[in-house]
Simulated assay, not measured.
Amino acid sequence: MNHVELTARIAEASPLRYTPAGIPAANFVLEHASELVESGVTRQVKLTVKALAFGTLAEQTGRLALGKSFRFTGFLVNARGSKGVVFHIQAFYPVSEQVLNPL
């Protein structure tokens, strides 16, 4: 199963664009920072990931403020022409700021 759930801040957002088929699309860069326990040791985790949303969701995410935290759900695909991955956003939910560690 390819399902990702990530709490992150929107670090960058490109203007809304349209695919050749006329579907709205929005590109983002998301940043995550937290502390996790791995093998009994607390570890600082930081992550930056490219993200993409299509359709009505792209229109909604295009109005979100930079720096705000959200819980994003979706899936990962290989980035076109590179070895990296892109997080395709399927849903997002507001998150209370006190839940997150500052970046």
Score class of each variant (00 low, 15 high):
residue 39 S to D: 14
residue 31 E to N: 14
residue 26 A to V: 12
residue 24 P to I: 07
residue 17 R to W: 04
residue 6 L to I: 13
residue 30 L to V: 07
residue 23 I to D: 13
residue 9 R to H: 09
residue 40 G to K: 10
residue 35 E to C: 06
residue 39 S to F: 14
residue 23 I to R: 00
residue 21 A to Q: 09
residue 39 S to R: 15
residue 5 E to W: 07
residue 34 S to E: 12
residue 9 R to I: 09
residue 8 A to D: 04
residue 31 E to V: 12
residue 33 A to S: 12
residue 24 P to F: 08
residue 26 A to D: 02
residue 23 I to P: 05
residue 23 I to L: 13
residue 9 R to E: 05
residue 27 N to W: 08
residue 32 H to N: 15
residue 32 H to A: 11
residue 37 V to K: 15
residue 38 E to C: 05
residue 23 I to C: 04
residue 29 V to Q: 14
residue 33 A to N: 09
residue 31 E to D: 14
residue 11 A to M: 07
residue 11 A to N: 10
residue 19 T to G: 01
residue 13 A to T: 14
residue 31 E to M: 01
residue 26 A to M: 02
residue 25 A to F: 00
residue 34 S to Q: 02
residue 19 T to N: 05
residue 37 V to M: 08
residue 9 R to G: 02
residue 18 Y to M: 04
residue 27 N to T: 10
residue 21 A to H: 09
residue 38 E to L: 03
residue 27 N to I: 05
residue 8 A to E: 07
residue 6 L to V: 04
residue 29 V to G: 05
residue 10 I to F: 06
residue 5 E to C: 05
residue 22 G to N: 08
residue 34 S to A: 07
residue 18 Y to C: 06
residue 32 H to Q: 13
residue 31 E to G: 03
residue 5 E to M: 15
residue 24 P to D: 10
residue 41 V to N: 04
residue 25 A to N: 00
residue 22 G to D: 15
residue 17 R to V: 10
residue 6 L to F: 01
residue 34 S to H: 14
residue 20 P to E: 02
residue 20 P to K: 01
residue 32 H to E: 01
residue 35 E to R: 12
residue 30 L to K: 02
residue 39 S to E: 10
residue 18 Y to L: 13
residue 27 N to L: 12
residue 22 G to I: 02
residue 5 E to Y: 07
residue 37 V to I: 09
residue 10 I to D: 00
residue 27 N to G: 12
residue 39 S to Y: 06
residue 17 R to Y: 05
residue 34 S to W: 00
residue 18 Y to V: 04
residue 38 E to Q: 15
